[in-house]
Design a protein around this nucleic acid. Structure first.
Length: 450
DNA sequence: GCCTCTTCTC
């Protein structure tokens, strides 16, 4: 049954957007064909694989055929496994790489820290950081800062602080970036005063604050609506010849929007150019977001046209803002048109786009299109959240598409995503209310043993 | 091929 469902959905996915589904594959195929002779056979073959589970066995196949794996092999495999969050396999491969004494780059470790961090596994990242000297690899301040940042982003400020204090023992001297991360951590906890103390400490220790340092502080003040102090910091920056960049202005514009001063924010967009700072995407998206928030979607769309007129190519975030507010207003069909439009314009949707779109379609009851979007999302290798799956499962069942619902459940099972209690309740109620395929469904659920 | 900090979307 599931197989049948999967086939139907695949067909739908191709209809959804052939350009999107087929292109990445054909592109890699042709480029690999082009450089096949130069590329390491294992890496070339690895890139063709859809399923990350096959990656490790391919690696083993090559090992058995007495193929000697070098750094490019390990790196490509680790990236692939980390991207699909197969962290158990990541560990296995790391062990082998360590034993083989392969000379490896620090960037690989930094990328892995970030993958661990994104999956909220900071302890895995710290463990690897401490283990780095066992690899044939140099560990610099950059790794140190990367680990600090992962800890702060995972809400482990105290641990980050401990690591920061032990920097000297580890042979590192904190630089601007290290301090910026600590300031970000404090601001994240609402500790503006302590963040200012760290700022002063930087000056004492002769570590120069950068635009980023100022942006963090200005951003905090703007979110609080304290524009006066934010402007004072802007003055201070200028005095120290640290010039405001597009992000600085984006914060100020956001602060103005927050204070219901949209026109002033818009004026600042024009003023910043006079002050020698070219407006960037983020400045436009701040305006679009505020317009969308107030339900003025047509005006938000006109900002998009303004950007195009200025030859600034909208990115995925800009489209996400529009798609999000269209969905919120129950205009999922228009949101879908926007999604197609962005792809035609050469902008690939990301995980957020898909989540918003599936949610918006569920809201208006178009579960069939929601399902094909979900499938496109799976094919493009994006991770999704429980809520996205849940609303679709419940919706498909309530509209009588048992095959579709089972397909989604199967995909959840593959990814070890569990349905929430509330959704289960709805499903059971739905199943008991009608007789349509109930026994079939129960069998399916039992076999999945979620 | 993914390489440290600020930024708008869920």
């Amino acid at each position: 049954m599931i197989f049948r469902a999967a086939k139907t959905i695949n067909r739908n996915a191709n209809r959804f957007h052939p350009h999107h589904v087929n292109n990445p594959q054909s592109k890699t195929a042709s480029s690999n064909l082009h450089k096949r002779r130069k590329v390491i056979p294992f890496v070339a073959e690895l890139k063709q694989l859809q399923d990350p589970k096959q990656a490790l066995s391919l690696f083993n196949d090559y090992t058995q055929r007495s193929f000697k794996h070098h750094y490019p092999s390990y790196a490509a495999l680790l990236y692939k496994l980390a991207r699909s969050r197969s962290f158990h396999d990541v560990e296995t491969v790391l062990d082998r790489m360590q034993r083989s004494n392969t000379h490896c780059k620090e960037s690989l470790f930094i990328a892995l820290f970030q993958h661990f961090g994104k999956s909220n596994l900071p302890e895995k990242a710290t463990e690897l950081f401490h283990r780095m000297n066992k690899f044939n690899c140099s560990r610099t301040l950059q790794s140190f800062n990367a680990i600090l940042n992962v800890l702060v982003d995972c809400d482990r400020f105290e641990e980050a602080h401990d690591v920061f204090l032990r920097s000297r023992d580890m042979g590192f001297r904190p630089n601007t970036v290290s301090f910026n991360v600590m300031i970000k951590g404090l601001l994240g906890k609402g500790e503006f005063g302590k963040a200012c103390n760290v700022f002063d400490e930087m000056l004492q220790r002769k570590v120069q604050p950068s635009v980023v340092t100022y942006n963090s502080l200005i951003g905090f003040l703007c979110r609080k609506g304290d524009l006066d102090n934010a402007m004072a910091l802007l003055e201070d920056m200028n005095k120290k010849k640290k010039y405001a960049n597009a992000v600085t202005y984006a914060h100020l514009m956001e602060g103005l929007c927050y204070m219901e001063k949209f026109d002033e924010a818009k004026k600042l967009l024009f003023d910043m150019a006079y002050r020698g700072c070219k407006p960037r995407l983020v400045n436009f998206s701040v305006l679009m977001n505020d317009l969308g928030r107030r339900g003025r979607i047509e005006e938000a769309k006109s900002v998009l046209h303004e950007m195009k007129k200025r030859r600034i190519k909208p990115d995925v975030v800009v489209y996400n803002i529009l798609i999000n507010y269209l969905c919120k207003e129950g205009r999922a069909a228009e949101a879908y048109k926007m999604l197609v439009e962005m792809q035609i314009g050469g902008c690939e949707p990301n995980a957020v786009t898909y989540r918003i779109m599936v949610g918006g379609l569920c809201k208006v009851g178009d579960y069939e299109l929601g399902l094909s979007i979900l499938n496109a999302m799976l094919i493009s290798g994006h991770c999704l959240r429980r809520e996205t799956f849940s609303c679709l499962v419940v919706g498909l069942l309530s509209s009588g598409n048992v095959d579709g619902a089972c397909f989604v459940l199967e995909e959840m099972k593959k990814r070890s995503v569990e349905l929430d209690m509330e959704s289960w309740e709805t499903i059971v109620k739905c199943a008991c209310g009608e007789d349509k395929g109930v026994s079939e469904l129960i069998t399916e659920l039992a076999s999945l043993s979620i």
